[in-house]
Design a protein around this nucleic acid. Structure first.
Lengths: 357, 357
DNA sequence: GTGAAAGCGCTAACAA
DNA sequence: TTGTTAGCGCTTTCAC
């Protein structure tokens, strides 16, 4: 760096000649010099809870303000081995079809003094790259709301980077997880549907490798069985609007003789696609001829065109929990794994009615 | 750091005693020692385009792989004065009502080798804080898709942090900007509407302090005037679905005697709210009794319940441009300001029809 | 309570 | 081509 004349510890001669090179950001040394104190004193002023006299603090802060000094988080991270960066992994689909999640997580991280390093992940190779990037940037932790293989997780584990899974986990490998298991609410909702006379249902699931989809599907199947409602057709979607629409067509094909009176979609976005397809294409009125329910509780589901009956996830509390779990594990890396399970909440809507006779 | 016995340049005795402390991440020194080369040789291997022999590279890479070494981006950033971090500022509303934007920007940043440090901004004070945070983290640049005052911008300017504004700019202050001016497309669409016999229109605007809203409103007003279409009512919304709905009510109140045959909403989300309100609450059929158009071209607008006629922004190309402009200015900070203006594209939909007679 | 000094992991002169 | 060396800006002992 010969072309940068700057030195961390300026010589006596520099002292008066160059109070502050124009355009260069002030360092703790600049502040120290201006305040006439040692550099470590400046450092202490910016570290909460260090022993320092009030006159010292005052002098330093005055100089700092004058130079617009703010500690360099990168340099701090280098020495403290804490970057205050958390990698947040989301898939494009998640963000498009459930934007609330990313938003809430970022807010909670921010409230905890952490910054979100955002990564969008579309496939396994992306995840691979993202893990390396996160490692290079010394992230303190990872919140993963996208797909991650067990092998990939093991890399993070070996590197001792705390990971919190958001709405997914490995059943056969210990991990820290926050998710929503709406078992009770599924029962509650299916009970309602049963009381409304529904006896023949169809299900539109998400991708088979997706945890959330699998869990919800199992809950739904269990509840339907318990209430004696038959599953006459089942289609697999990919959480998108379009797949909700095509899913309904598939259901129709599967049950050529008699359509079910109820379609349970494993997320709201598919439920919306399904509803539109029913009304616009198949000419089935919702809810009079076909009842539809979803999962998630996304904002759009409540638009007047849909008024979707659904089971909401407590995204705010889940995000808060995820961040808390990360910070806990950053503080104490030996902390054991933990699984925090939240309940859902049935959101009544206009998309269900008494089964047609 | 007395409890960390590690030294960057290990003494001879360390050499054999501690090949690699368990659980600690490998540094370039560890790799150098294992490969039996100097530390700077390791550094060179990881810097593309540096002169190094192939056998050296091979040896180093072998050792690096063995130790799972990846260069520390934080330390690198400290010395190169380049963090490879770009602050991305979005408002919660933008992300909820236009999630494509954040997604695209992040993807493009990633393709350019930059990481997105995500900040959600709700108000002026947030922006203030975010600017300080970004400064502390030594971000190479800022992409702002949320509100920022001119004073706040000047802080960034003084600190020589390149800023690219996404769909907003200061008219009276030089700045670097990417935005969409759909002047042509507004004309094109209004011409169509005129041909369909519309003579009385209403407009639902966004917040008056919002650039995008103001620009679009002006374009719309100009075009309507040009085609001799009267604006019989105008309501102000805040880009949300709800404000689209209430906006229509306000329009109805303003034009008690005779409703307009056309409502132009300044974004899609309000258009959707407006459409739902028209059909579900006011019992006005869209498009037969009321034509509605929007702006943005969000995915949801194309759902079968809406099939919104709208003017799309080329988000992908705009994001690409924004990232290019940032990287250019990181390379050469003296680069002059630039304004890249994109056109829109009319997306035909089912939300407009011949004006009722 | 304060300052001196070491060093976090890396890059980039410079010398060999 | 390779090694030596001097920092990047900060935190944290350790003396005083």
């Amino acid at each position: 760096m010969a072309n940068n004349p700057r030195k961390n510890k300026p010589s006596e001669t520099d002292d008066n000649v160059i109070p502050l090179i124009k355009g260069r950001r002030a360092t703790s040394y600049d502040v120290a010099r201006l305040a006439g104190v040692s550099q470590s004193a400046v450092s202490r002023c910016f570290k909460p809870g260090s022993s320092i006299s009030s006159k010292m603090r005052e002098r330093v802060m005055k100089a700092a303000k004058e130079l617009e000094y703010q500690p360099n988080a990168i340099a701090r991270g280098l020495i403290t081995q804490r970057s205050n960066l958390v990698a947040v992994l989301v898939s494009g689909r998640l963000n498009l079809y459930y934007p609330e999640v990313l938003f809430k997580i970022t807010e909670e991280l921010s409230a905890a003094g952490l910054r979100a390093l955002l990564f969008t992940v579309e496939n396994e190779e992306d995840t691979e790259m993202v893990i390396e990037q996160a490692w290079q940037f010394q992230v303190d932790g990872v919140i993963s709301a996208s797909h991650m293989s067990q092998d990939q997780y093991k890399i993070l584990e070996k590197r001792q980077i705390p990971v919190v899974f958001f709405n997914r986990y490995f059943a056969d490998h210990p991990n820290t997880v926050v998710y929503c298991d709406p078992a009770e609410q599924v029962n509650e909702l299916v009970a309602q549907l049963s009381a409304l006379g529904h006896r023949r249902a169809a299900v539109i699931t998400g991708p088979s490798e997706n945890m959330v989809s699998r869990e919800r599907t199992i809950r739904v199947q269990g509840s339907l069985a318990q209430f004696g409602i038959e599953i006459v057709a089942q289609a697999q979607g990919d959480f998108t609007y379009e797949s909700g629409a095509s899913g309904l067509q598939e259901i129709k094909a599967q049950s050529a003789d008699a359509m079910p009176s109820l379609v349970i979609c494993i997320n709201d976005m598919m439920a919306m696609g399904c509803m539109d397809e029913a009304q616009s294409v198949l000419g089935l009125s919702v809810p009079d001829e076909l009842s539809i329910v979803g999962f998630d509780g996304i904002g759009m589901g409540q638009f007047a065109s849909y008024e979707l009956t659904t089971i909401r996830q407590p995204i705010g509390r889940m995000s808060e929990a995820a961040v808390k779990m990360i910070t806990d594990r950053v503080e104490r890396p030996d902390q054991s794994h933990e699984k925090r399970v939240f309940e859902g909440a049935v959101i009544p809507g206009g998309s269900i009615a008494r089964a047609p006779t």
